[in-house]
Write a protein that binds this DNA or RNA. Structure first.
Length: 463
RNA sequence: GGCGACGUAGCCAAGUUGGUAAGGCGCGGGUCUGCAAAACCCUGAUCACGGGUUCGAGUCCCGUCGUCGCCUCCA
């Protein structure tokens, strides 16, 4: 039985989709005005893992992740750079998609964008509907959501309007009826991207587009709505307010939020400036490293992003990969009862951990135990045939987590020459010419080839 | 100031309905080896602090201290 932590109730709840066997999930994607950083990667990875696990559990998952491709920041950035805002957004969208692919994140079922005609049509329909019902009003070409009209406003973030009023910085001379009201449509200035409406030309507010895309792609009520926990308020609160006021139905059943990535003890963010872009990270590390970092923690908790945690993730990956190595040269067979028992119990333990609100750290712990037993079995002489069932399970479970665990490969014919060199080297070794033997090993290491010697012969692999 | 989350070995961390603490990284020792590496084995915490409930609490309650997030754009 899968249980998920629901931000709205602050408890783990049994997962029960609206429609048997099907899951509709929506995750808030980035506003594309700059390079994405590893904090974005964390969020994308978390929900990729959730999605993969749901699929592993047999659900047919429809997964929507949007791109916010029109907003103030995009417009400002484009004007700074002297480029067209649509071109700017398009460039970052393509880069983001490539990053997701490099991180082995499954493509979303659909990637709606705010500026698409179908989205814009939905947005306008929503705003008009909200105005009709008295939940929204227009002023000077803007449209605002009337927060006080929504009785249960604040139910997700656990705030109430009175408390917020007390500490709120109320802008002087604001044209809004109330400081808490938020824009669902913004009047466009000269030269800004704009769409025509009965109350003037302009662009959608940030919150309304997500509501509209979610409604259009997945329907009035969805199963899971996700995003970073920095979106809980006001973004998701406002999404709920608009959507439920418009449809009169419950918007999302389960709200899932990932914790923030921490760099030097603080949330990684553009405004603080303490960020590492996904592009930079992937220059030095394979995608699995970032995923490993995420898997080793709890998705709801802050994640430490440090040199030490990164290298721990890298070494942990090596360890997982070690489980896939073939039997030793003179494997003669070994006792496998314990290994097979462990293989079966690992799958159960994995599922149990993941069922408990996607406890990846716990699941990973069980996988590591299986790896150790596989390696121990190999050391005592298990053959490839004997190792295979356990290795297959290892592959299956790590795949559910989205880990690729690829061995590096040489290019073209290099392997042939390396084998030749190692043949010569083994001849050198029988003559006990250790200095020459070690020289070859060192030089190969410098080229990325790790040579390991044992009494049964030498083996090598790309590192 | 308000709301929320968290505080487990050097680091990252797991811990079902309370019954004497997974796993990974690192450190140290060992087996193997000409050496190295890999793999395997051994080695470490009474769970921020102070109270309380209980036969028994990391696991429930209260308080204190600390860290982080949100309250403005933000994955």
């Amino acid at each position: 039985m899968l249980r998920l932590y629901n931000t709205q109730t602050r408890t783990k709840e049994e997962f029960q989709p609206l429609e048997e066997g099907k899951v509709r999930m929506y995750v808030c994607g980035p506003t594309v005005y700059d390079n994405a950083h590893v904090g974005h990667a964390m969020s994308a990875l978390v929900f990729d893992i959730v999605r993969r696990y749901l699929q592993y559990r047999g659900y047919d998952v429809k997964f929507a992740m949007n791109f916010t491709d029109v907003d103030d920041k995009i417009i400002n950035r484009a004007s700074e750079k002297g480029v067209d805002p649509f071109d700017l957004a398009e460039g970052y969208i393509q880069a983001y998609k490539e990053h997701l692919d490099d991180l082995n994140i499954l493509p979303a079922t659909v990637n709606p964008r705010a500026t698409e005609p179908k989205t814009m049509k939905q947005i306008l329909a929503m705003i008009e509907g909200l105005i009709e019902k008295g939940y929204a009003y227009t002023v000077n070409g803007d449209a605002y959501f009337r927060v006080h009209k929504d009785d249960d406003y604040g139910k997700l973030s656990g705030r109430n309007l009175d408390e917020m009023q007390a500490g709120a910085r109320i802008a002087v001379g604001d044209i809004k009826e109330n400081a808490s009201d938020f824009a669902i449509w913004k009047n466009a200035k000269e030269g800004e991207p704009a769409w025509e409406t009965p109350w003037g030309s302009g662009r959608p507010g940030w919150h309304i587009e997500c509501s509209a895309m979610c409604l259009h792609e997945l329907g009035e009520s969805i199963d899971i709505h996700g995003g970073g926990n920095d979106l809980i308020f006001p973004h998701h609160e406002n999404e709920i307010a608009q959507s439920e006021s418009f449809t009169g139905k419950s918007f999302a059943r389960y709200w899932m939020h990932n914790g923030m990535l921490q760099l030097s003890g603080e949330k990684m963010s553009k405004s603080i400036g303490n960020l590492v872009t996904i592009e930079d990270f992937l220059k030095d590390h394979e995608g699995d490293v970032m995923r490993m970092l995420v898997l080793n923690g709890n998705y709801r908790s802050p994640l430490a992003f440090t040199d030490e945690s990164i290298s721990a993730a890298e070494n942990g990956l090596k360890r997982l990969k070690s489980g896939f190595r073939p039997a030793t040269a003179k494997a003669a067979g070994a006792e496998t009862e314990a290994l097979y028992a462990k293989t079966a119990s690992t799958r159960d333990a994995f599922t149990e951990a993941m069922d408990d609100d996607i406890n990846t750290a716990g699941a990973l712990g069980h996988i590591f135990e299986l790896v150790r037993l596989i390696n121990a079995s190999r050391d005592t002489g298990a053959t490839d045939e004997q190792l295979r069932p356990a290795q297959n399970t290892l592959r299956e479970l790590t795949s559910v987590l989205g880990l690729e665990l690829k061995e590096k490969e040489g290019s073209g014919d290099t392997d042939k020459f390396i084998n030749l060199l190692l043949e010569v080297r083994s001849e050198v070794r029988t003559q006990k010419l250790w200095a020459l033997s070690d020289l070859i090993r060192d030089k190969l290491a410098a080229l990325g080839v790790t040579v390991e010697d044992s009494k049964d012969g030498s083996s090598w692999r790309w590192e």
